[in-house]
Computed example of a mutant assay.
Amino acid sequence: MSKVLIIGAGGVGSVVTHKCAQRRDIFSEITLASRTKSKCDAIAAQLGNSINTARVDADNVPELVSLLRQVQPKLVINVALPYQDLTIMDACLETGVNYLDTANYEPIDTAKFEYSWQWAYQERFKDAGLMALLGSGFDPGVTNVYTALAAKKHLDEVQEIDIIDANAGSHGQPFATNFNPEINIREVTAICRHWENGQWVESGALATKHSFDFPEGIGPMNIYRMYHEEMESLVKHIPSIKKAQFWMTFSDNYLKHLEVLQNVGMTRIDEVEFQGQKIVPIQFLKALLPDPGSLGPLTKGKTCIGVIARGLKDGKRRQVYIYNICDHQECYREVSSQAISYTTGVPAVVGAIMMLTNKWHGAGVFNMEQFDPEPFLDELGPMGLPTVVVDGGDWPEL
């Protein structure tokens, strides 16, 4: 059994804390830390105050180092903001603690989702004998594992992947995001990139649309191509991939509101002056929108996230669709969070279990697809996210 420090007390942090508390066979002592300690205390109260709480500024390396030395965890689970990945990694290196996150580093002043900053830590973690596991959420995370499973068991050569993320749930709000509004909007409005024939191909944000018929009663929904960071690591570590695309569903209502907000400048990430003060419009917008954590009791419906992998099997072209269906209301009943937080938080805990039980181990900085997918998926299903595999189906090429 091992001590763990969770940094971040938003929707995902709440799920991670609840699920770690369900596995005391692995997590002997849990500390939850955030800039706002009252958020940690509220989560602790839901768990009968069976965990420890602390305040920490995740932008401040000395504060992080002080907390790590006090708690002495074997692993930090970072579910704070992507802007804070590097400071937390620095603190882990200084104190000799292993590291896990769910989203790659992003500079606060530019919407640039890529792994280069964290991959640059490879030698430092390797020399320290420490492990950093990047992107242990669902996408990135489980989608990387699904792709690795396709390469291990279902295809001799993976040549194309389509990662498809559908939220078929409804919360009844005029406009809201299912996770941090600032990160969500920065991601959605970024220039689209997909991988094709050895290079990145750019296109307009949400400019490419298809209809996709989702399984298990969800039915047809519009999907839009966008950039997502797991493609960067997948094409690096599975070099047979010639084409990689990421698709996500958006309602017409969401896109209408987003277009208006863009047109009036509310999605800008640069500073503007207002009444003698500097403000960032998207950060002000975040303060106006519903807290994603408040959407749990309101959200009904399901998510479907998966990977269609195409390639060669026994010399013939073949495809496999690997996916998960998650129900918003069932998640709320279990951990008081909707499925978007649940599908990110549960894989973070499973990644932590892989590291703490040495089923996944090594010194350096790693992405999910670099390890054996089967132990992870064997744990993921019983933890609440079962995997469905349709081998050889007739899903359309996108």
Rank of each mutant, 00 (worst) to 15 (best):
Y224P: 02
A120S: 14
G381V: 01
N197I: 04
G293V: 03
T299K: 10
I241M: 06
P62L: 02
G315F: 00
K256W: 12
G364S: 08
P239L: 10
I163R: 02
S116K: 14
L155Q: 02
Q370I: 06
A45C: 08
Y323C: 05
K152H: 08
R317T: 12
T343P: 03
G11P: 05
T343C: 12
F179C: 03
E229T: 14
V260R: 11
Q275H: 14
L295S: 07
V349G: 00
K112H: 13
N180F: 11
T17Q: 02
R55H: 11
H361L: 09
Q22T: 09
V97M: 00
P73C: 05
E271V: 02
R35W: 08
H154A: 02
K316C: 06
L261Q: 01
G141D: 01
W195Y: 12
M355P: 01
H194F: 15
I282G: 07
D314Q: 14
D165T: 10
P107G: 04
L64H: 05
I6D: 05
K39W: 01
R55S: 14
D156M: 04
F371L: 02
A80C: 10
M368C: 15
P239F: 10
Q46P: 10
E94M: 13
P297K: 10
D162F: 04
C92L: 06
C304R: 02
I308K: 03
A190T: 14
T303D: 09
A363Y: 09
A103R: 07
S251N: 08
E123F: 08
G11M: 07
